[in-house]
Amino acid sequence: MRSKRTELLVGCFILLGIAAFVYLAVQVSGLAFSAQKDTYQIVARFDDIGGLTSRSKVTIAGVTVGTVESISFDKELYMGLVKMNINTDVDNIPTDSSIAILTSGLLGEKYLGITIGADEEVLQEGDEIFDTQSALVLENLISQFLFKSGDSE
């Protein structure tokens, strides 16, 4: 029947559209539908956040364990205040761990890497990591290098 076939094809068309949408969402943008994992928030202050943005990754040993929630300016200490959400299943980060702003590849995105400390106590909601290492800014590196080589001569 003519109209049944039409209806079937229209149904297939709409299904194809939805399937393509889901494909784009999951495979291309990496959107995880279980993304609403429970998290806890910790903070860190950096001298220079150098290109880190909200939603950047937070990693331990290269594995993503959370994301940057927000970045703001701490007026009293003149530092960049970074708040990040860590998945609750990673609940054993020692309080004396250090955190650094790293770059993926030569020109890639900035992300946070946590290096594990040795303390017995672990970070809780709202705690701060004090041992921070700022982003490497190319200009500063070059000028350091130039001044150093000037001294030695």
């Binding site: 949408f21 784009l24 969402a25 495979q27 291309v28 943008s29 990496g30 959107l31 939603r55 995105e109």
Partner: peptide, 15 residues
């Protein structure tokens, strides 16, 4: 190919 794509594509701003 996939990981670089997933890193840079955001669901709300791009899709």
């Amino acid at each position: 190919f996939w990981s670089l794509m997933q890193q840079s594509v955001y669901f709300d701003t791009d899709i």
